[in-house]
């Protein structure tokens, strides 16, 4: 017969066994790479039918998985093979949910450099998300950013930014930015303002660090361009490149040598007269016409 002692002994034996078995199972190759099974993730349009009436919740789950997928790979190998597919499916399942479009679009643009997919996702979001959504303006805003920052299509960028600026909830400076964008699209100041807005709206600390770095890089780019302009004036005036930046300052062409945001210094290469930062090896190509 079952008595209490026997029952306790049985529990005492079986429970630890179960625990260690589960650990063992989790370690086996059959269980690893579970999330990467995304090649079996069918298209969202199929899932919408197959999920019966639970497509929203399925979309939510998939969205959570997507965030985890992104986070894991961000910290490890920075390979995001399935990211855009997962985003596509989860937005198919949850078409009115704004956040996956916004965050997903930013992930695709900033991290994986899949600009076309980012643009497509923002456009899909603008089509599906109701305009009454409080964060709706972010969609044209980031879309405009994509066009400006990566595509250098300033006309398109200005158009979407303008759209964002007409929507409720946009920040106060946005109309001004739009005007400046129309007037002087190729202006690092505009990019810095945008990035600062993105920085404020990002919760992920790693992302924030990344954006902060990007802002500083653009500042470096801006400063270098400024210094290049001054160098050219110097050359036109004296027929030769200056040896040091100090000369530019002494000659009164610039009234100060800009402060390098990474804590380094700007200098002129004696060989070809090009200007560099001690901290940034490669210049950002994107701003150069």
């Amino acid at each position: 017969m079952l008595n209490n002692k026997k029952i306790l002994i049985m529990f005492g034996i079986i429970l630890p066994l179960l625990y260690s078995l589960q650990k063992q199972i989790d370690l086996s190759p059959e269980r690893r790479g579970r999330i990467e099974d995304m090649k079996y993730l069918p298209s969202g349009r199929f899932l919408k039918g197959a999920a019966l009436a639970y497509d929203e919740i399925l979309g939510d789950l998939l969205w959570i998985k997507t965030v985890i997928y992104f986070g894991e790979h961000y910290l490890s190998n920075k390979q995001y093979e399935w990211l855009s597919h997962m985003l596509d499916v989860s937005t198919d399942l949850n078409p009115y949910f704004e956040y996956p479009y916004e965050a997903g679009g930013v992930m695709l643009a900033m991290e994986t450099k899949e600009i076309d997919r980012s643009i497509a996702l923002f456009k899909k979001g603008m089509k599906n998300v109701p305009q009454t959504d409080k964060r709706y303006w972010y969609l044209p805003f980031f879309l405009g950013f994509d066009y400006m920052y990566f595509k250098k299509d300033f006309a398109a960028a200005a158009r979407y930014m303008e759209q964002a600026a007409r929507l409720p909830g946009h920040p106060e400076y946005l109309p001004m930015l739009v005007t400046r964008l129309y007037a002087n699209a190729n202006d690092p100041e505009v990019a810095i303002a945008f990035l600062k807005e993105i920085y404020e709206n990002t919760e992920n600390e790693d992302m924030k660090r990344d954006i902060d770095k990007r802002i500083k890089e653009i500042i470096v780019e801006r400063d270098i361009r400024l210094l290049e302009k001054a160098r050219n004036i110097f050359r036109d005036r004296y027929g030769q490149y200056p040896d040091t930046l100090q000369e530019l300052f002494k000659s009164g062409i610039i009234n100060m040598i800009p402060y390098e945001p990474f804590g380094g210094k700007y200098y002129i290469d004696q060989k070809d007269g090009s200007i560099h930062s001690t901290m940034v090896e490669e210049r950002l190509g994107v701003y150069i016409d």
Binding site: F11, I14, L15, L18, L21, Q22, I25, S28, P29, E30
Partner: peptide
């Protein structure tokens, strides 16, 4: 491929859980 080792683990897990 799924190894028999894995199958065995999974089956043992099942039997023990059922026992509980």
């Amino acid at each position: 491929p799924v190894s028999w080792g894995y199958i065995l683990y999974a089956m043992s897990y099942g039997i023990l859980y059922i026992a509980i």
